[in-house]
Design a binder for these strands. Structure first.
Lengths: 179, 179
DNA sequence: AAACAATTAGTACGTCTGTCCTGTTAGTTT
DNA sequence: AAACTAACAGGACAGACGTACTAATTGTTT
């Protein structure tokens, strides 16, 4: 049988990771500290240092965890996507930019972290995997698919920053060039 | 006539901004502190706090300054670009990813900062302006042009992270879909 | 029940941080 | 020359930080 202490520990580990994501949504990666995360989770500081010896370890874990989480969510959406992919793809982007805006921004901040740590390349690449799958669902041409993945990244980024507001019709119009 | 003290002050201001960019290239935005910047510039701490009262002010100034700097450089390249735009565009991207890799990464970190401060939206948008111009040089269709701008952002980002290595031929092949 | 292990709480230490304050230098104006 | 001011240096302060250490708590094994 499972050790009850360990399952509780794993639960708290997840609590700490979600708390970390919450902190990042609110204050950015810069706002992450053992104390801030502990406060967010309603937990003692020692508990965070127990599960994640260093801050770096915490951030790395948060990145990989967020990547898995996003992959799982996107995977669901991929399965539901069939009839009118352009419209549904647009709705997905809108979802990321409106209802999940903070989370998406947090993901991009973590995403960029990977550029400085080779150990995270794999996790960051996994991030793109479900997107690539969606793209291949949209068009069979592999070149157009990878172009679409890049464009999705760019559109999300630019809209997050507010340099270019998101517009549903504009976006679906763009997609017609990639069928 | 100009005040000699002020012109020296402005020079030091620029020195501090380039030092800030250098620190960001080396250690990321997270590594920026008054002391780190002062050390990089070989200057006393008080000098940085004199020119930029708060750290935030320093980062904001660094962002807008970097944006202007990049815009100026891209503007030059736009003028030289004529004969074979696809190839030259690919060379530009390669330039950003190889010879200017650290700087490009720094720019993206600052770029993302704008998402949390509405005051920076304008500066971030200015960042896209020369890119847009290049895109319109490449194709007359405005939709394809904005698609290209987004794709450029995505490709740069993904290559910086190392999730997708840059390949010259692949890239020029992608561009054919956007003529 | 007793020995043990996983987890949590409280706390303390040294370091680095942002920022302010005081004095000093150098250039400008009158 | 004297008053003034922009620019700079050095230092000091309180606070937040990462992290290690010790004890207490809780669950498991024997």
């Amino acid at each position: 049988m499972q050790d009850g202490r360990r399952v509780r520990g794993q639960l708290r580990r997840v609590e700490l990771l979600t708390a970390t994501l919450a902190v990042i949504e609110r204050a950015g990666v810069a706002g992450v500290s053992h104390r801030a995360v502990a406060a967010e989770a309603g937990v003692s500081v020692a508990s965070t240092t127990y599960h994640f010896a260093s801050l770096d370890e915490l951030l790395v874990a948060a990145l990989t965890w967020a990547a898995e989480d996003l992959a799982a969510e996107l995977h669901e959406r991929v399965n539901e996507m069939g009839a009118r992919p352009a419209d549904e793809l647009a709705r997905l982007i809108e979802h990321c930019l409106v209802y999940r805006r903070g989370r998406t921004l947090a993901e991009y901040e973590l995403y960029l972290m990977a550029a400085r740590r080779p150990a995270l390349r794999e996790a960051a690449a996994a991030w793109l995997e479900p997107l690539t799958q969606i793209a291949r669902n949209f068009t069979t041409d592999p070149q157009k698919a990878s172009l679409l993945v890049a464009a999705l990244d760019g559109i999300l980024l630019q809209s997050l920053i507010g340099a270019r507001p998101y517009n549903h019709n504009d976006f679906t119009a763009l997609l017609t060039h990639l069928r």
